[in-house]
């Protein structure tokens, strides 16, 4: 009987273990191995060069530092501004003003449709001839502010940032859920004690949802570290490398048949991800995370 059960346990774990091995464990190992090789396909080349890729990346590649800077800046902006925006909305909605459910649903819509659809919408919004942004500036007589937003060196970075910055539906949904799950008598007691609305938000509610905000900050960091499609579709990383981030740079190296170098960038992404997560957990006091 017990022996029979063990057979079933193994069988039940097998599919997950296969998925994990093929798509996480082996690729993870391969990223580190490939990063030590000059690895090209067609014609196949797999030549050990030690830390050559790393030396090139950090010391001789003029593109790498701007790309790293873009990535980190975007993570920072997203973790602070984007999460603050979404949390602020949650703090308004948890008091259940009229129409709060409607706002919650509608604000989530840009997060439910695909990133590539949002990207295509903004390609058009920013179009220099007929895009809504320039049309609006023209309508209110500010023609001199009109730009070719996505392809002008000075505006590309902020313009592309706005394609995701304002859509904080996930943060709002999560923080709001946490707010709504707190015991209403706690809030009522504070009100009886004469606390103002703002004091309740700051001194009672915020500590209760702080950890959830920490979770959304981690999600925001992960989102930005992995951002690819919206940049790829709108600017392709240009002009120059003004809007290139690490995933995009990795991809462009794959396209130029430099798989070893691409994997070196992959290792950098893994390290940046690990460090960012640790820092965020430290700031929000989330020491007992699932990360062993």
């Amino acid at each position: 009987m017990r022996k029979k059960e063990r057979k079933w346990i193994v069988l039940f774990l097998l599919p997950v273990c296969l998925l994990f091995v093929v798509f996480f464990a082996v690729p993870l190992g391969m990223v580190f191995v490939q990063s030590l090789f000059d690895y090209r396909l067609l014609p196949n080349k797999f030549e050990f060069i030690g830390f050559g890729n790393y030396a090139k990346l950090f010391l001789r590649d003029p593109k790498f530092l701007p790309v790293l800077k873009n990535t980190l800046l975007w993570i920072l902006i997203h973790c602070i501004g984007h999460v603050a925006l979404g949390s602020a909305l949650a703090f308004v909605l948890y008091k259940k003003p009229r129409g709060w459910k409607f706002v919650r649903v509608v604000y989530m819509i840009p997060n439910i449709i695909s990133q590539s659809a949002i990207a295509m919408i903004f390609v058009n919004m920013y179009n220099p001839q007929f895009g809504a942004v320039n049309q609006f500036l023209k309508a209110i007589g500010l023609e001199k502010l009109m730009h070719n937003w996505l392809f002008d060196m000075s505006t590309a970075f902020p313009a592309i940032t706005m394609t995701w910055f304002l859509f904080a539906g996930y943060t709002t949904t999560l923080v709001l859920a946490q707010c709504l799950s707190t015991d209403e008598t706690v809030i009522e007691a504070a009100r009886v004690d004469g606390a103002s609305g703002f004091q309740i938000d700051r001194l009672v509610m915020f500590p209760l949802v702080k950890e959830m905000i920490g979770t959304t900050v981690i999600m925001a960091a992960t989102y930005m570290l992995q951002m690819f499609s919206m940049i790829y579709i709108t600017t392709g990383g240009g002009p120059g490398s003004a809007t290139t981030n690490l995933p995009l740079y990795l991809y462009s190296n794959m396209k130029s048949n430099n798989y070893g170098y691409a994997s070196t960038i992959g290792v950098v992404i893994i390290i940046v991800g690990f460090l960012t997560m640790r820092i965020i957990q430290r700031i929000f006091g989330m020491n007992k995370e699932e990360v062993a």
């Binding site: 273990c17 996480f24 690729p27 490939q34």
Partner: peptide, 21 residues
């Protein structure tokens, strides 16, 4: 714990090996 590791690996880092696989 090993399977949970998949939570903390940014999958965009694995583009090249997954393509090869």
């Amino acid at each position: 714990s090993i399977l949970s590791l998949s939570m903390v690996i940014p999958t965009t880092a694995l583009l090249s090996p997954i393509y090869v696989t």
